[in-house]
Design a protein around this nucleic acid. Structure first.
Lengths: 241, 241
DNA sequence: GCGCGAAAAATTGCATGCAACACCTGGAGT
DNA sequence: ACTCCAGGTGTTGCATGCAATTTTTCGCGC
């Protein structure tokens, strides 16, 4: 099936749907799509990522698929075994614990730096963001709260004024997203999460660096134990198949 | 120039860095080689990475080169612009500062965790390693000290018992290597570095977590200011030779 | 002389084909 | 029955070719 570059290409459109620039390469687009599929759980951990199957699925050849897989391999979302194909990265319980510890530490570090170096404007925005989340927590909408939660933590990363740490925190957050999301559906977790955010935000706004560090570390560690509780109850189902 | 798969392949050097199999693909080998060339300064920051040139240089086709470049792009060593080729990542002074801050924070975190969770054996080994460095510092051999220094910091990473943080610390360390190495040649820096290590090691061995954190943060921050002093004197030449 | 636009050259992006390795299946030997 | 090995099959790895897009060069008008 020669697809030929001259043939009509789907996305060839001028302004590109969903705001995506056509300036991105297929490999990048694929990396994003596959990452999305993994993070949302559409691709279960451990499932094989057949190059040809993915190529047909996304209407491209194997070459950009391979490039995307290698890219995702570096970021840790998929595991590429030398001549044995790629699989969605399987996180063992120990690795999950390490990921959570790492995220807690990085986020806490970001919080400390943010307390030291956020601008007045950034502090006001963080405050406003936290306030707006109170309603969501009361309303009890896990999905909406999860989105706002991402924004809140993102604001803290940004406030650290360190793109290296912020990028790392974001990548950890993405890798843990499937596990974190579930815990928002646990009764009462929303309100407690919001309370913990309040402690973090207050410390950052007041510039109390060590306190911000401790509060964020505690917050993320609590998320971890919440997730571990979930996993303990659903042992064995995580890996799928 | 059809090279055929049957041609003699070097078979890999078995560098044994982290237990890699000999079955590495060309793309992986290339990623390693190119990364090495960048880290050692053979490829200056900002230089274009022409796919065909690299392919000829390493005796392969453009396909594995492209895969390697994309891999390096994700790890941050290389910047890949969508249709405009790849260049060795240019670190501006600000980014360099951010990298150092990030490394300082991560290393400090590792030190704190190490103080909390190193095994008695690991503690003894760290102590022995530090002792052996005293001679090197006195002898004033920058290269030998640099190697031992890497081992010392590596022991701290390992002692944190968190591969996620350890891997990140290692990748930051690699990215900063060209800049850090120079400062060991500054007169007196070796002895001072060893003294700082002593404070870090003592805190870790005694299990004083917060002290270990503070000592490591201070140590790496001092390295940073030392490097900045060097850069200030050699403005603009940063990439070169 | 200088900016501007179009053709030419260079370079990237992707599709395809072929060879080597990994896995699976079936049979023989112990 | 179990292990071991040979053959077949599927998948990955890489080389190559072509189309599209940059970048460069050159000619033209101002």
């Amino acid at each position: 099936m020669r697809q030929g570059r001259g043939a009509v290409r789907d996305g060839g459109g001028m302004d590109g749907r969903s705001g995506e620039r056509s300036g991105r390469t297929q490999a990048e687009r694929l990396a994003g799509e596959i990452a999305e599929a993994i993070v949302t759980g559409a691709l279960a951990p451990g499932s094989r990522l057949d190059e040809q199957a993915l190529a047909e699925r996304y209407g491209v050849s194997r070459t950009p698929v391979r490039e995307a897989l290698r890219q995702l391999g570096t970021s840790g979302l998929v595991e590429v075994r030398p001549r044995r194909g790629a699989v969605v990265a399987q996180v063992t319980a120990e690795q999950l614990a390490e990921l959570f510890v790492a995220m807690a530490e990085i986020e806490a570090t970001c919080a400390r730096l943010a307390a030291q170096s956020m601008s007045p404007l950034e502090r006001r925005r963080l405050d406003a963001l936290h306030d707006s989340m109170a309603d969501l927590a009361r309303a009890g909408d896990p999905a909406a709260y999860a989105r706002a939660n991402t924004a809140f933590h993102g604001a803290v990363y940004a406030g650290a004024h360190n793109t290296v740490l912020a990028d790392f925190a974001l990548s950890l957050r993405r890798r843990l997203q499937p596990y974190r999301e579930a815990q928002f559906r646990v009764a009462g977790r929303l309100a407690r999460s919001h309370d913990e955010h309040g402690v973090v935000a207050a410390a950052i706004l007041a510039g109390r660096a060590e306190e911000a560090h401790a509060a964020m570390l505690r917050h993320v560690t609590l998320v971890e134990s919440s997730v571990e509780g979930l996993l303990a109850r659903a042992t064995g189902e995580a890996g799928g198949a």
